[in-house]
């Protein structure tokens, strides 16, 4: 593999452009195609985010698909977030933390993480959640959680989760209905967020949320 190809893949990743490195397994010849240039089986592989062998002009090729990394936007720079952010990073996600309360979203509490102190709706609008983005609200404060959820519900985020008890969630559902969202739309929100694994500590709750989000990403049905 030529260094120039590795550099080109890196440049495409920086621009969040889906691409594939295509290797002719017989000759060893390699080239890069993007979602814009790819056709047929290669275009399908890129869209499905699935590396694998494909047939091009009767020859066996391997497509190494490179999509922009999945992302988690966490609203609330709280104790759970201090566990969730590094775990999500380890699992391969880009992490962005949103919390307008200055004392929470500090680089001291979250070293090396993208932090936004904008109001959650502005922050989410700027971050543009796409099909490779999950949004999770952890503040427990409707003033902060609701604006984020409203933007998330209007996006194609693959996972939306909101922390809080069943009672809190019922109240949240009622408020979102007042904003004009239908039951089907609101049902996209995993609330209370996280798989029921008996999580107690902030780190355990982070595990339950990350597990649920992983299942959503791979479209694996789980008990809520």
């Amino acid at each position: 593999m030529k260094l120039a190809l590795i550099e080109e893949l890196a440049a495409l990743a920086t621009r969040r452009q889906p691409a594939a490195l295509v290797t002719d397994l017989t000759s060893g010849a390699q080239r890069i195609e993007t979602a814009a240039t790819a056709t047929g089986a290669l275009a399908e592989a890129i869209a499905a985010d699935k590396s694998g062998e494909i047939d091009i002009d009767g020859r066996k090729h391997f497509a190494l698909v490179r999509n922009p990394p999945p992302r988690i936007i966490i609203v609330g720079a709280v104790h759970i977030t201090q566990g969730l952010a590094p775990m999500a990073t380890l699992a391969g996600y880009d992490v962005a933390i949103v919390d307008p309360r200055g004392a929470f979203a500090t680089s001291e509490r979250f070293p090396g993480t993208t932090l936004s102190q904008d109001w959650p709706d502005d922050a989410l609008t700027a971050l543009q959640p796409d099909t490779r983005t999950a949004v999770i609200t952890l503040t427990h404060d409707p003033k902060l959680d609701d604006p984020a959820l409203i933007v998330a519900l209007r996006s194609s985020a693959f996972y939306i989760g909101a922390l809080g008890s069943k009672k809190t969630h019922a109240a949240r559902v009622a408020r979102l209905k007042e904003h004009g969202f239908g039951e089907g739309e609101i049902a996209r929100i995993h609330g209370p967020a996280g798989l029921d694994i008996g999580a107690k500590s902030p780190a355990e709750i982070a595990i339950s949320v990350l597990a649920q989000l992983t299942a959503a990403r791979h479209q694996k049905p789980t008990a809520r």
Binding site: M1, L3, I6, E7, L9, A10, A13, P69, G92
Partner: peptide, 10 residues
């Protein structure tokens, strides 16, 4: 991350 390995190889 698998995404980072090629960079590290480079």
């Amino acid at each position: 991350r698998d995404e980072d390995l090629l960079q590290i190889a480079a």
